[in-house]
Design a protein around this nucleic acid. Structure first.
Length: 270
DNA sequence: CTAAGGACCTGTCGGC
DNA sequence: TGCCGACAGGTCCTTA
């Protein structure tokens, strides 16, 4: 489900509920997620106060004075704030229990999500080789051009490579390329340097706008407060196969690239 | 080194 | 109505 805007929406929704509160325990009903939930996770976190709720790529970072809880929502995960106990439903795999009886509940049908503990988050193996955040200053046209030089991989797959830039998933890769007027299949290294400023702006804009709308709700994504996002109606190409391009009217085309559904306007994008 | 494909899971939907 | 395959927002790992 979640791409960066959905994770950021979750982060913002949860932040006021968790910062400054202590974790009392982590209850794991199903440890078989993308990686096994560490058996000592609850012991590592119990009694620690959450100093901040941050985000790196699509990981939520619950920072305490002595170590950080990393949480990834995978493909189908959502994290909800419960003011008090409620009986767990199907796929409610983990609860992060807070002082006072509130809890954060992870629901994840496909179990591609994960939880980790790191003394220093940035040094965790899953975070230490990641590229820049797309909404931060390190993601520039010049940077992206340099990473693309000599690469034959399609630009869409290049954008979705977390070592290049994080947080650009399948929806927003298609959307950004539409805005930039670039065909998703174009080899990354065969895009003129002069086109990169527009591409970088497009990535930034589409992500920022989606965050502003509370994320994209496709099937049943809900943010930390349980409310859906409203970016879906803003999508220009994603899941619009056969529908008219909003700019030129040509039918949007669905193709498969790297085993992922890809959408583009054959006229506007070159 | 790059690039491509498989792997991990469950739920939903369309077609027969 | 029931079954079966295709497909779904992520990304790591293996193979060539």
């Amino acid at each position: 489900m979640p791409e960066l805007p959905e994770v950021e929406t979750t982060r913002r929704g949860l932040e006021p509920h968790v910062v400054g509160r202590r974790i009392t325990a982590v209850e794991v009903r199903e440890p078989r997620l993308r990686w096994p939930v560490p058996a000592d996770l609850s012991a590592a976190l119990a009694g620690r106060r959450i100093d901040s709720l941050g985000r790196r790529a699509k990981y939520l970072l619950f920072a305490t004075g002595d170590g950080t809880l990393l949480l990834h929502l995978g493909m189908s995960g959502s994290l909800r704030y419960l003011p008090g106990f409620e009986p767990p439903q199907a796929h409610d795999h983990v609860d992060i229990c807070l002082e006072g009886g509130a809890r954060l509940r992870l629901n994840d049908p496909r179990r591609f999500g994960s939880l980790h503990f790191a003394r220093v988050a940035a040094e965790h193996p899953l975070l230490c080789d990641l590229g820049p955040e797309p909404l931060e200053p390190g993601f520039t046209a010049d940077y992206l051009w340099r990473t693309a030089r000599g690469r034959r991989v399609a630009i869409k797959q290049h954008l979705m490579n977390g070592r290049v830039v994080v947080g650009v998933g399948n929806i927003y890769a298609s959307e950004a390329l539409f805005r930039a007027g670039i065909r998703p299949t174009r080899p990354a290294g065969r895009i003129a340097r002069a086109r990169f400023p527009r591409l970088v702006d497009a990535v930034r804009e589409v992500l920022a706008e989606a965050i502003g709308h509370g994320g994209t709700t496709l099937r049943n994504f809900v943010g930390g407060d349980g409310r859906p996002g409203y970016f879906r109606q803003e999508l220009s190409v994603y899941e619009r196969d056969g529908e008219p391009c909003k700019r030129c009217g040509t039918a949007i085309r669905r193709t498969v690239l790297g085993q992922r559904a890809t959408y583009h306007c054959p006229r506007c994008q070159r």
